[in-house]
Amino acid sequence: MSPRVFLRPRCDRCNLPQHLCLCAELPRVETRTRILLLQHVVETWKKSNTGRLAALALANSQLLTYGAQDESLDTALLSEPGTWLLYPDGPTSPPDAPAPKQLVVLDASWSQARRMTQRIPALRTLPRLVLPPPSPGMLRLREPTHPSGMSTLDAIARAVAMLEGPEAAAPLERLAALRVQRIADCGTLM
């Protein structure tokens, strides 16, 4: 006989277990830069996914799913003028280039993100916004698998800080820290 598994009900909006729901804490963050989240289908219903939280908090954002059967990705959005890719390596833009109008963020594991950049030709041609490595004091739930690793929400907050200043990123940083703290206080990884 197998042990009984109890699944905790999740919030339909933020996808976190209901006892960790952050919907009441979601800020409304206005940015000049449009954030286009390209979420790998495997990430869609993960409780650990932070891309969904970022999309809920950012007024100027759109969340698209990549890799779903019977769905094709409209790559026209990736070809809009002024579109950059948030990625740790690759062709960076010249220092005197104008700031991006749209920033594509891959919401995926490192291996999934690497495959996405290989399989979506439009991503390979975009200039890259490369973040500096995370500070040692950054709150995390687990150790990253990549030296520049951080959650999607943390990465977006850092990108917004670089592009629009720390004041614009502060609500996203608070949301990321609150998420980590709430989960840590429960003593569980959900």
Rank of each mutant, 00 (worst) to 15 (best):
F6N: 06
R8M: 04
C11H: 02
D12H: 05
D12A: 13
N15C: 12
L16V: 05
P17M: 12
H19Y: 14
C23S: 03
L26Q: 03
T33K: 05
R34S: 11
R34H: 15
I35A: 11
L37Y: 07
L38A: 11
T44G: 13
W45E: 10
K46A: 14
K46T: 01
K46S: 11
N49E: 08
G67F: 04
A68M: 11
T75F: 11
T75E: 15
S79Y: 03
L85H: 11
L86M: 13
Y87M: 09
Y87N: 11
P91R: 15
P91F: 07
T92N: 11
T92Q: 14
S93K: 07
S93V: 12
P94V: 01
D96G: 02
P100R: 03
K101M: 02
K101F: 03
L103Y: 03
V105L: 06
L106C: 10
L106N: 07
A108P: 01
S111H: 15
S111C: 05
A113I: 02
L126C: 10
R128H: 08
V130P: 11
S135A: 15
M138A: 08
M138Q: 14
P147T: 13
M150W: 00
S151C: 07
D154W: 12
I156C: 03
R158Q: 07
A161Y: 04
E164I: 01
A169S: 14
A169I: 00
L175P: 03
A177S: 09
R182P: 04
R182F: 01
C186H: 14
C186A: 15
C186L: 14
M190N: 01
